[in-house]
């Protein structure tokens, strides 16, 4: 019922939410890449989705195919209430914890960005 979410799990859940009815492997991977600028491997997305589905945080349905998929159908994902609740709690927790330290965080992180290595 409860439980925490890893960072990448959060990203995947958000991506599924953002994509509404259009969330499948390719779009999820691209959504995360587009919004975070990270290089995301397909394998990581599938592993995470399969884990989230096992915890009933997302559900899936088999959809249609497309010419560029050489006949292979897509698998679409939706966020389940259980997943939404966990994501919300997780996100809220993060936000609460961040309250009051954001400026410090910014300052410290800026140092890392500006070549503090």
């Amino acid at each position: 019922m409860t439980g925490s979410l890893g960072e990448f799990e959060q990203l995947v859940l958000f991506a599924v939410l953002r994509l509404r009815d259009e969330a499948y492997g390719v779009s999820i991977r691209r959504e995360i890449e587009a919004n975070t600028g990270r290089d995301v491997s397909a394998g990581a997305v599938y592993t995470t989705l399969s884990r989230l589905e096992k915890r009933r945080f997302v559900s899936s349905r088999v959809g249609e195919t497309a010419p560029e998929r050489t006949g292979q159908r897509r698998k679409y994902y939706l966020v389940e209430p259980e997943g939404a609740a966990t994501l919300r709690r997780s996100y809220t927790d993060s936000r609460r914890m961040a309250r009051g330290v954001l400026s410090t965080l910014e300052g410290l992180a800026a140092r890392a960005d500006s070549g503090g290595e």
């Binding site: 397909a42 599938y46 050489t70 159908r73």
Partner: peptide
């Protein structure tokens, strides 16, 4: 789905 995704 995986093979399809990769092909796409």
């Amino acid at each position: 789905f995986v093979v399809g995704d990769l092909d796409e």
